[in-house]
Amino acid sequence: MSLARKLTPSAMPDDVTPQMVKKIDKICAANRGKAGALIPVLQQVQEVVGYLPIAVQERIAEKLGVPGHDVYGVTTFYSFFSMKPRGRHVIRVCMGTACYVRGGKEVLERLERHLDVPVDTTTEDRRFTLEQVRCLGACGVAPVVVVDEDNHRKVMADKIVDLVEQYQ
């Protein structure tokens, strides 16, 4: 028996639509053979799908013509890539030093209690993903919380619940 056992490909999760797969293939086709293309490809695919489940990674490996372990290795190395589905809204609490000393930690703790999930997870209804981020460079207006694309400045713990509740 050959040592190189052919693995069956993982099943594509239901939330990855055929249109998305088509887009993935298109992104890969545009980058195949380009040196250093893997990270930009993963960034673009995550924008399309929202996350990078194993089946998507396998697809990228096949279409780019790179080993699957390289794709997995890079996906798990960088914090921007997620293998789990994310919420409709992503809350990112800055935990840079300036935000930390001005109350960022308390903001994060309040959110964990309010949403009833630990950091780096998604609420069951997939409304929110709670993340911490290492310094957004907006230290002048610390503590900073980013919800989706909106930067919120000087967010104190007692204001944070009202703030995130505006996002449905």
Binding site: G36, I39, V74, F77, Y78, S79
Partner: peptide, 26 residues
């Protein structure tokens, strides 16, 4: 421009170059 993907160690020069090459930034 090459956009990073969230790894502090990529500020180290050899790691940064590995990252531009599309690899784990070590």
């Amino acid at each position: 421009i090459y956009q990073g993907a969230g790894a502090f160690v990529c500020g180290e020069e050899t790691a940064l170059m590995r990252s531009i090459e599309g690899k784990r930034g070590m």
